[in-house]
Amino acid sequence: MTKSYKEWLDLDVDQIEPIELSTQRKMNLKQTILKKRATRKRMPKWVRHIAAAAIIGITMVTSVSIAFPTLALQIPFMKNIASYFDNKNTVFENFDSYATEIGQVHSSNGLSMMIENAVYDGTSLTISFALETDTDLGDSPFIEGDFMDFKGAVGGGGSSRLEKIGDNKYIGLANVTPHFDKEAPDELEITWKPKAFLNADKDTKVEGDWAFNFKVSKLAGELQLVNETVTNYDVTARFTALGKNDMSTVIHYEYEVIPEVLEKWPEVTVQFDELRDNLGNTYVVNGNGASSRDSGISYKSSATVQTIDPAATSITFVPVIYFSLGSGKGTELKEMNPVTIPLN
């Protein structure tokens, strides 16, 4: 061993002036890192929102009495799925404590799919699931086929992630918000029939016939009506209600755009990523998507966070307007004035 590396031991990195990398090199760096989705054995930290917008068709589920004979014959092969993910400060953190156990397993074509737990907070359904298969589906497989169907819903949106945790095991978490014409029901009835699981890296897939049907009751909670409005850049956002329950707090809001704005920006979205309470706690916001009945002039939307600290007396966040030319064609972001909502 030579001595020379020791010269660097007392190097003060604070004194070093940056040497910029080329744009090309930065891009390569990002690609290299994203490609190495190596799964760590103990705690997979890869989080990937596979379906940013899982669109649930307008199909109504008419028959729910179809029997699924192979269902529930097998013993669930995974427990506490949510605990495998790093869910700090997110709505998933207390998921397991409030979830209804579903425990359904269905096998087809050598792939067993299991639905472990689900929670319906009155707005969104949060669900944990797992796969066991001999086929290598890569690190983050895609699910083909319709996402979940909700009885009575006219549409919906949500996000999910599915990740490898072992040689033949995958675990997933999904958060889906159905939209109803009328008031959301007290009990959700869900049908989920994935068509195939796809390994995006190798273009291989396992097709099969899985079908789940289950009901989840709404968590007990209360609704606090609020009325906070903010208008910036010809967009008005109105925060109307807070849905509070043991697992989550849902911020209900609407926003409206002056029609002229739509001529330049056909899609306008108002969202926020983070909120704070007056005690300094930070919460990661899970956007639930938005729906419009008038071609994008007004939208109804909601966002979910982990239950706000009961000692807090207000929450504050900065709504952001995303002016979009349409998917992938360009966006412009504008921050609105901060909104503070007092808590009862």
Binding site: A52, I55, T282, N288, G289, S291, G296, T331
Partner: peptide, 21 residues
């Protein structure tokens, strides 16, 4: 009916750590 998904890109000096995590 227009349906939109939840994911949008926004990263600032204030929130990048949270988003990175």
């Amino acid at each position: 009916m227009n349906i939109k998904g939840g994911e949008m890109v926004r990263c600032t000096a204030k929130n990048f750590i949270c988003r990175l995590q």
